[in-house]
Design a protein around this nucleic acid. Structure first.
Lengths: 197, 197
DNA sequence: CCACTTAATTTAACACCGTTAACTAAGTTT
DNA sequence: AAACTTAGTTAACGGTGTTAAATTAAGTGG
């Protein structure tokens, strides 16, 4: 009786242990150092066990990517419910994106195949990524009610700007202090949002 | 006697053959598929020969990255000599950057550690990258003569915008046609340059 | 022409990688 | 007790970056 209850729970625990370990190794040693065997060692199982939870390393990375987008999605939702002013909304969403990349760079990396991470599943086929897009697009639409094409265009600009700055800030962090980059980011995103009107 | 002359020439040929092969494999199969053995096979040598020309795979990638920045540097120089108007200069430089990423995406990838490519040498220590920075900064300075900090700031913004859009356009190319992305890129960069005044 | 040196190149190995087939041991069911 | 399921491991395959040792080829002095 208890086995029926304990097994699924353990399964979920092991699964999230695998994900947690992968992220932990990536954070400390970079994605190029993440291997199935190393993960298995850390959770004290043999390598094939990992394949009972993820069909391949690629699927594992895809799950971490999706986790990332889902987390972002929740945060964006929170912002949208918190503020009424569309301008404020988009600006705060921008800040959340920065904070996320700053605090969980290894996840941000696998989301965009940065720094040696490679998840071969196309990013635009990820449902969770599309959910993020929908939220931001809706936010833009809520104060610039234009045709869908225009919205997509503005979204692409917003995304490029935000992502470009985050990426470069990461890349140059030893040359240009992160706080300085953040200041420029805030100013730039604020200006972008303001100019939308 | 002839050996003295023929040897160095062959050496240079083999070296560039290695670089060419690496880029070719990366273009066709992605950077994750580039291996020393595969390169060696292609140039019809055994793997250790590659190490007579590059101390490690990492310095091989670093050389390709530097090649990329040097090429960009030359193109920027060409632009600067071609136009007098600083606004035109920066805009044309932006277009060259786009064209480069479009025509040699595999090199652009290794320059920024995109899409699974990983060159562990820090990008800001690359002399050729710094040369690129100097040119663009000088161009910005030539029509916005402000303090060095302000220039660096503007450069960071320009770079982020350009790089962000290029990166996203690559990532989303199967969802958003590249020509459409290019149109947005041109408009955005033109506007950025115009607003500098 | 033969022996010797030097340079060029390959073979073989090490420790790792993702992945899978075969196997063992422990329950569970009938 | 026999058959079957489950959880887990070991061992292997073909690949990776890298290096030391062995081998081959070429040139040189006697």
């Amino acid at each position: 009786m208890e086995t029926i209850e304990r097994k699924p729970r353990n399964r979920e625990q092991i699964r999230s242990g695998i994900l947690k370990t992968a992220k932990s190794i990536a954070r400390q040693e970079g994605w190029q150092a993440v291997s199935i065997r190393k993960i298995a060692d850390a959770i004290e199982y043999s390598a094939p066990i990992v394949y009972e939870y993820f069909d391949s390393k690629d699927v594992l990375l895809d799950e971490i990517r999706s986790e990332g987008f889902r987390h972002l999605c929740q945060e964006y939702d929170r912002i949208v419910n918190l503020y009424r002013d569309p301008e404020k909304r988009l600006y705060e969403i921008s800040l959340v994106q920065w904070e996320f990349a700053r605090q969980q760079p290894e996840i941000y990396q696998v989301m965009y195949n940065l720094g040696g991470a490679l998840c071969t599943m196309p990013i635009y086929e990820s449902e969770s990524m599309q959910a993020v897009s929908r939220i931001v697009c809706k936010t833009i639409f809520s104060f610039i009610p234009k045709a869908e094409d225009s919205i997509k265009r503005l979204y692409f600009q917003w995304w490029s700007m935000s992502h470009g700055m985050i990426m470069l800030a990461m890349l140059l962090k030893d040359e240009q202090p992160i706080d300085q980059s953040e200041q420029i980011y805030r100013d730039s995103m604020r200006r972008f949002v303001r100019d939308l009107r």
